[in-house]
Simulated assay, not measured.
Amino acid sequence: MFALPDSWVWDFWFADDGEQYHLFFLYASRALHDPEARHYRASIGHAVSADLTHWTRVQDALVRADVPAFDDLATWTGSVVRHPDGTWFLFYTGSTRAPEGKNIQRIGYATSPDLMTWHKSDTPPLGADPRWYETLQQGQWHDEAFRDPWVFPDPAGRSWHMLITARATHGPAFERGVVGHAVSTDLRHWEVRPPLSAPAVRGFGQLEVTQTEIVDGQAVLLFSCLAEHASQQRRATGTRGGIWAAPAQSLLGPYDIDAAEQVTDDRFYSGKLIRRRADERWILMAFHHTGPDGAFVGSISDPMPVAWDGRRLTVDAPTPTGVLSADCTPVATGA
């Protein structure tokens, strides 16, 4: 487990340089007292590990900019990829304050030769294109959602794709969550495209920290959403929210959001899949969200093996009484 005694830790992402795993994570001081206040005090920390279990913290990656800037309120979730020329790119969310305490989110990037020292780009950030994505002016949501960039190479190798937490311009407020999309040929210049999913009756107000991978031969879209941000149909089932997985026809969709199933409940959030080099197995890591007392926790889990069982993504997730079964209920382990 990765935890900081004086700070909450939540959303995170990885880079693998072939020798070490690099963990980039959001953190904020517990001196704020209210964990909800952490969002506007977030910086991007950095730790390294040889086994995804034992971590050594190193120098921070990024902090927010001075006013005025697209990231002058906070730096939020992102992803890291390596350009063919060897340059590492860290794509991240920048938040800036809007009227009435709301915020507008855009996406920028920083580069590094070694994953340790990062320099922000002067390239204008990506924002929500009102042709396809809801903006703050529509008044349907508590912020202008355009964040959590997940960048990966095109399967054919001709370009790069970015998945984005975004909202459609139509539909009930709690069904508008979509997978935003942008493309690039060089990682430096991006074109916003229409979303790769549509609002769904059994959908979500937001699909946070998306990731797409092929697990046991099945393309899967991983995302997170809490119960209070899910559609009416989802909430009617009594879901607590958490980490979800939707089947897909390919890494680029279509994604069947209506068919999304819970991977964990809200004890875990912001799940990330990574292939462990030691055994080539897909594992899930997530941050500890809700504790037994209902309070926010703020630390990152140990690796949890996952598999596709033919219908859903299953995970061996430890709990105080065992592991989570496919329906997110505790199962005794005999330990």
Rank of each mutant, 00 (worst) to 15 (best):
Gly177Gln: 07
Val179Ile: 15
His181Pro: 10
Ala182Met: 11
Val183Leu: 11
Val183His: 10
Thr185Pro: 11
Thr185Met: 10
Thr185Lys: 15
Asp186His: 02
Leu187Ala: 08
Leu187Asn: 08
His189Arg: 13
Trp190His: 03
Glu191Met: 07
Val192Arg: 11
Val192Tyr: 08
Arg193Asn: 07
Arg193Pro: 07
Leu196Ala: 13
Pro199Gly: 03
Ala200Gly: 01
Arg202Glu: 12
Arg202Gln: 12
Gly203Thr: 06
Phe204Asn: 01
Gly205Phe: 08
Gln206Asp: 05
Gln206Lys: 10
Leu207Glu: 10
Leu207Asp: 07
Leu207Met: 14
Leu207Gln: 15
Glu208Asn: 09
Val209His: 14
Thr210Ile: 08
Thr210Val: 09
Gln211Glu: 15
Val215Arg: 00
Gly217Ala: 08
Val220Pro: 00
Leu221Ala: 06
Leu222Lys: 00
Leu222His: 00
Phe223Thr: 05
Ser224Leu: 02
Leu226Asp: 10
Glu228Val: 12
Glu228Pro: 15
His229Tyr: 13
Ser231Phe: 04
Ser231Arg: 03
Ser231Ala: 08
Gln232Tyr: 06
Gln233Lys: 01
Arg234Asp: 03
Arg234His: 04
Ala236Cys: 04
Thr237Tyr: 04
Thr239Val: 04
Arg240Pro: 10
Gly241Ser: 11
Ile243Ala: 14
Trp244His: 04
Ala246Tyr: 01
Ala248Val: 03
Ser250Ala: 11
Ser250Gln: 06
Leu251Thr: 09
Leu252Gln: 13
Pro254Asn: 03
Asp256Tyr: 02
Ile257Leu: 13
Asp258Trp: 07
Ala259Gly: 05
Ala259Ser: 15
Ala260Cys: 02
Gln262Lys: 05
Val263Phe: 11
Thr264Glu: 01
Asp266Trp: 13
Arg267Pro: 06
